[in-house]
């Protein structure tokens, strides 16, 4: 049984059809990358999961259960945490309050404020700072820490390397590999081939609102993957 599945999903913003029959699935503890050039509908997949598009056709399944009436809170309440593009830090809340917000679902699990602060010591040092006072890399740590606070089974990250220095991207890759080895499922929506290759086991290529290709990353070189992104 998959943790998350899109089955022939057609999704619209108003009258504009962005997804044209997207089908993919992610099983428990899998690390999957969703790649594609700008504007092909990668973020629309996240927005569809958050109920922000109109699903005209097809089904979104979480743990094998078709979800009608997707809402912003549906994914988190079903064990799927999302780190949005741009990180989505609430600017007027402190670092610690942003973390506490992530625990809203009260799902049981290993993650707590203390454990997240142990993973990212800077979040303990800056616990009383406003979220936006952090650097880009620190904000990404806060966004991931907040997502972990929900004790998810699947972590979706939308363009997490955007705006980060290469050394921080390396740290991010190491972190995601470590979380994946601990059993956390990861859906990495990315264009950074190096990060994808280090973190993911499988990939889907999204093109013109549909999955154009998929496979194991073991069989695909970085150059080939780069070519997929550039199609």
């Amino acid at each position: 049984m998959s943790l998350l599945g899109f089955h022939d999903v057609h999704a619209l913003y108003g009258n504009a059809r962005i997804l044209n029959g997207v089908t993919f699935s992610i099983a428990a503890s899998e690390r999957v990358a969703l790649v594609g050039r700008n504007g092909v509908g990668k973020t629309t997949i996240v927005n569809t999961l958050c109920g922000m598009t109109h699903v005209a056709q097809g089904d979104v399944e979480i743990r094998g259960k078709k979800i009608r009436n997707l809402r912003g809170y549906t994914a988190a309440q079903n064990g799927i945490s999302i780190v949005l593009q741009g990180r989505g830090i609430i600017p007027n809340l402190t670092v610690e309050e942003n973390l506490l917000l992530g625990a809203a679902t009260r799902r049981p699990g290993p993650w707590s404020v203390a454990r997240v602060q142990e993973l990212f010591p800077i979040l303990a040092e800056r616990r009383n700072s406003p979220g936006l006072a952090l650097s880009g890399g620190q904000q990404q740590m806060l966004a991931i820490g907040r997502a972990l606070m929900a004790n998810p089974d699947l972590l979706i990250l939308d363009e997490p390397s955007e705006g980060l220095a290469p050394v921080v991207v390396d740290e991010l890759a190491a972190l995601l590999i470590r979380l994946g080895k601990d059993g956390l499922g990861i859906l990495l929506i990315e264009q950074n081939v190096g990060l994808i290759h280090r973190v993911a086991e499988r990939f889907y290529v999204l093109s013109k609102g549909a999955i154009a290709e998929s496979g194991s990353l073991l069989n695909v070189s970085r150059d080939e993957l780069q070519r997929h992104i550039a199609i």
Partner: peptide, 24 residues
Amino acid sequence: TRIGLYVRAASTDPRITSIQGINV
């Protein structure tokens, strides 16, 4: 309070707040 935190968050950004699992 926990609800107060959610209210402050949702007053700033209802979408992000909702994505944390909160029914705004």
